[in-house]
Simulated scan of single mutants.
Amino acid sequence: MAEQDRTRVPRGEARDRIVAAATELFGRQGYEATTTRQIVEAAQVTKGALYHWFSSKEELLTSIYRELLAEQTSRLKTIAAADTPADARLHLAVTDLFAHMDDHAEPLTVWARSMHLVAGEHAAAVRAERRRYQHLFQDLIEEGQKAGVFRADVAASVITNTFLSSVVQIHRWFRPDGPLTRRELGTQMVALFLDGVRVG
């Protein structure tokens, strides 16, 4: 596509193209090996369009993850606010988390493999968003402990961090061509986690 043709891409569509192209390239050849020029070529947009939306490749990577994390946080907030027992809400929360991860496996795997390369304000913004999710999750655990449905011999912070840390590390050992699909893996991890946290 010629440079003059690329300028005709609507701004919103250009952003979607950039995100899709970056996600595919980061996943296929790695974040560090991918250049902004390659992203621009794959997205068929101008370099100006890329820098209109993202100040750097680092911001592009971070934005992809932050949008998904914000979506996870919003979904958890809705689930946690429901008028149902804490154990039912926790079951729905962890099941929904794995469903969301399955729906967005490629960009979330890209982030998990590349997050150690992000620093400064971008890393701080991610940490802040992750803390919001973590606090909502921990509050739900504490509510269940007070209601007597979750074991209280382990601190809610330990339960929360152990579970969420295990989720973050899935990319290190899960193989798409292995014996389990992502959905099947999620079902087994949900069962293992809930059996470990429930009283009795």
Rank of each mutant, 00 (worst) to 15 (best):
138 Q>M: 10
189 M>I: 02
187 T>I: 14
129 E>C: 07
129 E>N: 12
95 T>Y: 05
90 L>D: 03
191 A>F: 04
105 A>D: 12
39 I>K: 00
132 R>V: 08
155 A>K: 07
147 A>F: 00
52 H>Y: 11
97 L>K: 04
29 Q>K: 14
73 T>D: 10
110 V>N: 03
191 A>T: 12
60 L>K: 06
199 V>M: 14
182 R>F: 14
24 E>P: 00
131 R>T: 11
145 Q>M: 08
129 E>I: 07
70 A>H: 14
21 A>Q: 01
78 T>S: 15
102 D>G: 13
176 P>W: 04
64 I>V: 15
146 K>C: 05
110 V>S: 00
140 L>F: 06
33 A>M: 08
46 T>N: 12
99 A>M: 07
58 E>D: 14
122 H>W: 11
50 L>D: 05
95 T>W: 05
196 G>W: 06
30 G>P: 03
133 Y>K: 02
51 Y>Q: 06
20 A>P: 06
182 R>S: 15
32 E>Y: 05
15 R>S: 08
41 E>M: 10
85 P>L: 07
70 A>Q: 15
129 E>M: 14
28 R>L: 08
86 A>G: 04
136 L>R: 04
99 A>N: 07
12 G>R: 10
132 R>N: 13
170 I>M: 09
112 A>L: 05
106 E>L: 13
120 G>L: 04
43 A>D: 02
13 E>Y: 03
134 Q>W: 07
91 H>D: 14
52 H>Q: 01
6 R>T: 00
55 S>T: 13
176 P>D: 09
159 I>D: 00
158 V>E: 08
156 A>E: 04
189 M>L: 13
38 Q>S: 13
